[in-house]
Structures are given as structure tokens and as C-alpha cells.
Simulated assay, not measured.
Amino acid sequence: MWAVTGLIAWGGWIMIDTSLPTGPSSRSENGGSLLWTLNTSKVPVLVEFYADWCPPCKKVSPLVEEFSREIGTKARVVRINIDDQPGASNQHAVRSIPTFITFKDGREIRREVGAIPKRVMEDMLDL
């Protein structure tokens, strides 16, 4: 009974997660939906690992949001708060923040650490 209930709940979560909009705005994700996004995205994904208490993260946050709006549907931008999702940051060996990682077809292709300018974000996504 518990197994059936768990499978139904998990299936419902997957249905809700896949129905989320994939528009240009950046969004925060948890570890499970990040993995789903990385493995199913048809466009490159730029992931920013950050924390609310981090001064360089605060400095670059408006640039990340602006960049996300500017690129439209050419790529996706995802923000992961390491305090809320320590598993995701551990899985991707994030040791300093902010850390930006570009993924294509679910594989990491580039990494930058620190508050980077939009030009570098564009380069990371080959835009």
C-alpha cells in the first residue's frame, strides 16, 4: 500500500515538474528537478550555484536575471541556492560561490567561479 502511494505521489510530482514553464526567466530548482532539467533540456543550461548571504552572489544576481530574460529560449538559466540544496552543490563539486556551470545534453562543458559578467555567460553558452 505504501509503495503504491509513493509511486502515485512521485508520478504526480513528475507531472507537475514537467508542466512547469520553460520560458526565459531564471528559476530556482531543487536537486531532483535540476537533474531532470539537465537531462531533458534541448538547449544549453547555465546553472548558477549561489547563497543569499554571499556578497559576490548578491552583486551578480541582477545580471543573471537580466541575462536570462535577454537570451529568451536559446538557453535556460537555473539558480540553485546551496543552503537549500546542499546535495546538488555536492553532486557538482561546488566549492566556491558563485559557481556557474554550463551543461549540454546533461553533461558539464564549462565552469566559471566568481561574479562573472554577462559576456562570459554568453560565451559559456556559445551564444
Rank of each mutant, 00 (worst) to 15 (best):
D17S: 15
K58S: 10
G6T: 11
G106Y: 08
V4C: 14
N90L: 12
A75I: 07
F103T: 03
L63W: 05
I8P: 08
I71D: 04
I80D: 00
T102M: 06
E65K: 11
W10F: 13
A75C: 10
S33L: 03
D123N: 09
I71V: 09
I97N: 02
A3N: 06
T5D: 11
M124W: 08
V60F: 10
A88Q: 00
T102N: 03
P62C: 06
K74D: 15
R69Q: 13
G31V: 07
R107Y: 02
D17R: 11
V120C: 03
S19Y: 06
K118R: 13
S28K: 03
L46H: 04
I101S: 03
C57N: 03
W53M: 05
D84P: 01
P86E: 02
R95L: 14
T73D: 14
E65Q: 14
I101C: 00
N30V: 00
G114E: 06
W53A: 07
L7H: 07
L35S: 14
K42L: 08
P56V: 13
I71M: 02
G32K: 06
S26M: 12
S68Q: 06
L38F: 10
D123V: 04
T73W: 01
E112A: 11
I16S: 03
A75W: 03
N81R: 00
K74T: 15
L63N: 14
E66N: 13
I82H: 00
T18Q: 06
A93E: 11
M1A: 13
P44E: 15
G23K: 07
V78G: 04
V43P: 06
S28Q: 09
P117F: 11
V78I: 15
R107K: 15
S89G: 04
D17W: 08
M124D: 08
R69G: 14
L125W: 06
E65V: 12
P117Y: 10
R27D: 11
S41Y: 05
D84S: 06
L20H: 06
P86Y: 01
V47N: 01
V78P: 02
A3K: 12
S33W: 04
L38W: 07
R69S: 13
T18W: 05
S28H: 12
V47C: 01
N90P: 00
N39T: 07
P21E: 07
L125E: 11
Q91G: 07
K104C: 08
I16E: 10
F67K: 14
L46D: 07
S25H: 09
T37G: 04
C54H: 02
W53G: 04
R76M: 12
F100I: 11
V78K: 02
Y50W: 06
V60N: 09
